[in-house]
Structures are given as structure tokens and as C-alpha cells.
């Protein structure tokens, strides 16, 4: 997917573990892991809001657009 999640980089900058972030944000560790590994298909504004608040960052710090071909299963959504 052209949208890449840079959660690992932001976490490294903040010296915060994924488990700690999961506790603070109120999202399960499994779901945050899906997000971090780029397997997520969509993100709620409420999740993005909580992440930005806890990591003290902007949405653009977490999400980056990288031009490239879409995933094979993305076409099914339309």
C-alpha cells in the first residue's frame, strides 16, 4: 500500500515500547502490532487522535505516502 505506517520510528524516537503505547492509547497490543507492521486496511480518526496525543506528534509523523502500486487485494474493496 502506498501509505506506510512509521509507528516504529516514532516509538524509537520517544523511547516508548509498543506495550506501553497500547496501555496509554487503549488499543490492544495485537491491533497496534497490525498497525505497526502495515497490515491494517484502515485507521479510525479516534485511534489517530489518541496516538498523536500520546506520542505528541502530527498524523504526518505516523503516516507517510510513498507512491507505488496498490496491493492486490485492494481492488476487491471497490
Amino acid at each position: 500500500m502506498p501509505i506506510r505506517v512509521q509507528l516504529d520510528r516514532v516509538l524509537l524516537d520517544r523511547r516508548m515500547s509498543l506495550t506501553e503505547l497500547a496501555d496509554r492509547v487503549g488499543v490492544t497490543l495485537a491491533n497496534l502490532s497490525i498497525l505497526k507492521t502495515g497490515k491494517a486496511r484502515a485507521m479510525r480518526f479516534s485511534t489517530l487522535d489518541a496516538l498523536c496525543r500520546e506520542l505528541n506528534c502530527q498524523p504526518g509523523d505516523i503516516l507517510v505516502f510513498e507512491p507505488g502500486p496498490p496491493d492486490a487485494d485492494e481492488g476487491e474493496a471497490e
Binding site: 488499543v27 497490515k39 491494517a40 486496511r41 484502515a42 485507521m43 479510525r44 476487491e76 474493496a77
Partner: peptide, 11 residues
């Protein structure tokens, strides 16, 4: 099934 999968992968 597709919508369920989408919902599962919406964080």
C-alpha cells in the same frame, strides 16, 4: 466476509 475482514483490519 470481505466487510468483516475490513472491520477486523480497521484499527
Amino acid at each position: 466476509a470481505r466487510l468483516r475482514r475490513e472491520a477486523e483490519l480497521t484499527i
